[in-house]
Design a protein around this nucleic acid. Structure first.
Lengths: 344, 344
DNA sequence: ACCGTAGCGGAAAGCGCTTGCGAGATGACC
DNA sequence: GGTCATCTCGCAAGCGCTTTCCGCTACGGT
């Protein structure tokens, strides 16, 4: 190998080259007081000349605690989580924090493993985004891990409803589901299908509950099809809806990503949206406005949710878990209209 | 504060509780040889009972090197980078690596700062995704930082063309640009506008060069409008194209995200796509097929690019930088057609 | 000119873990 | 039954940095 492996300069090298002690060098570089400005400048200049990069592990070990936070999402490429991540990264950058990112792949086991890795890395805080699970067993293990982390000085914030007694940002899922349903009802729809994600996710349970309550209160017929929280899942669920209840006049997809799948199936099936079938989504991901037709949806402040979660972990810990509720907004676009027999 | 801050159990606690020495406990938990299976099981059981989580910093310090890799992207919420990130995370998970993610915000200065932070954290490898800069000064600083990192034992891989002598995954930008242009030419377009990102990015330069070369060789008129690499940038550039050259028959957007902005402006302007104006994008981000109309584009294997980059860093270092070129594929969809005077 | 005070710099003790080396124990072989 | 090879385990020395505790210097006050 022609690669010359040169040892990284250490603080001691900087100190020696600058003609000062370790303590002085450390203080100078950390910008701590107790060193004259002149001296500090000198040390910094020497460090720069040597290409010194402090060893964050040594620093973390000696001072106890690194400036790293952990982020766990279901899937980074899902626009919902991408937006949340962006919010988290923005706040992290503002505070000089580094972000260790993880995907849980929507698997409770994987999620648990990721949390442990984060703990091992002594991150200062963990932001767990994505839905909780309706399975009490999985939630209990996660809760134990997270509580242990907090008890050893870590900070935790969740995005979404989990059965864990820690700070959380709660998206307005139930009310959002109700709002979406009401929109369809007001347009005159009475045969509505819900294209839902996996029943074991609390996000799905909440949105569905809000929608179903509203719809049945109005005496509408409701069918629900569960599938993956993905474009393909949305497509598959929609195909089943079409087969099972061809007279459905409106589709309520519990995420925009699923709505995208729904729209594609409807397009292929030659069912005009919204003329024959209305479609409403959830989240308002960035592309929702650019779909064909533009998607009516319930907007959640995704990036802010991520930002708020990280900010929660930065505040002084509270004795009782804090809950921050978000708002939601119906964004009416071209994908919803009155059912055709009314329009006619 | 009612939060009971309990100290994290240390390896010494586990060793004592298990009745073994530190060395044995360490080896047992690391799964290293030199410890009988019986003993190792016992130690692991005790560790689990105590809720022991090894301190990754101490481990990194003692063993020199953490199992963390750094990833720098321009913007996590941009679908292009989200896909690359997914590829990186997949490979990282397969190898038990943690990923420290960073956004450079398309700022050379920020990018540099992020690389330094990654270095400070003694990551084993850095994957730098996103375009290089045509500004030689910025590239030089980045190169210095990256080369220094490599010389001190770090591994680096880039995605995209940078003026840095390290391993890289090179997307087929130039040829892809040519392919997109040829598609338009074959349809009969002769007045083409390129909706381009910032000129200082090598990605833009390469795609544009490939397209322009092909177009001018065919004697087509070409206008280029630069703007941000975003939906809004694409919209603004398109608006300018419309004002400057109303007789343009085809738009070549250098990324799908910009194409989305272009489509929205065209829709608002009442210009039918592809009847009046054809639009072709670049990347084939997941939603490209679901736009209105479905976007013709040049597909790049984004997730694989991320995966390949990380895998490059995992291989034994080579004396000379390795370059992996990707393929590209034209994905014809509904947004392109022959210009109207031909169709008529 | 003397003493008090403040402020700066140096020595050293860890932070929690890995690991090379050597001691002790165990079994094999003659 | 003795000797040697083979394992298993423990000791102790760091990894690079922070931080406390002191001692020293250089001032200003009187």
């Amino acid at each position: 190998m022609s690669l010359t492996e040169r040892p990284t300069p250490r603080l001691a090298d900087v100190a020696r080259a600058a003609g000062v002690s370790l303590a002085t060098a450390s203080r100078a570089l950390a910008g701590r007081e107790g060193v004259s400005a002149r001296m500090a400048d000198h040390v910094r200049a020497v460090a720069a000349r040597l290409g010194y990069v402090p060893n964050a592990h040594a620093r973390a070990l000696a001072s106890g605690g690194a400036s790293i936070v952990g982020l766990v999402v279901h899937d980074v490429a899902d626009p919902y989580f991408a937006e949340i991540s962006r919010g988290v990264l923005r706040v992290a950058a503002e505070h000089g924090l580094l972000v260790l990112i993880n995907q849980s792949e929507r698997e409770p086991g994987t999620e648990l493993a990721r949390i442990r890795e984060l703990r091992a890395n002594r991150v200062g805080a963990i932001v767990l985004a994505g839905s909780g699970y309706t399975d009490a067993g999985a939630e209990r293990q996660k809760a134990a891990e997270l509580v242990a982390f907090r008890e050893t000085g870590g900070r935790v914030a969740l995005v979404g409803r989990h059965h864990v007694p820690v700070d959380a940002v709660l998206p307005d899922n139930r009310a959002g589901g109700a709002t979406a349903a009401r929109h369809l009802l007001e347009l005159g729809h009475r045969r509505v299908a819900v294209v839902a994600g996996p029943a074991r996710l609390t996000t799905v349970a909440d949105r569905l509950e809000g929608a179903a309550a509203e719809l049945s209160a109005a005496g509408a017929e409701v069918v629900v099809e569960h599938d993956d929280f993905s474009r393909e899942g949305g497509a598959a669920a929609t195909a089943r809806v079409l087969a099972r209840r061809p007279d459905t006049t409106a589709l309520l997809a519990l995420t925009d990503v699923m709505a995208i799948g729904a729209l594609s199936v409807l397009r292929e099936a030659g069912r005009a949206v919204p003329a024959e079938l209305s479609v409403v989504g959830f989240d308002d991901i960035p592309v929702a406005a650019d779909l064909a037709p533009a998607l009516t949806t319930v907007r959640l402040p995704m990036a802010e949710m991520g930002a708020m979660a990280l900010e929660l972990t930065l505040r002084t810990p509270a004795a009782r878990p804090r809950r921050k509720r978000t708002t939601h907004t119906l964004i009416p676009r071209a994908s919803t209209a009155a059912p055709s027999h009314l329009g006619a």
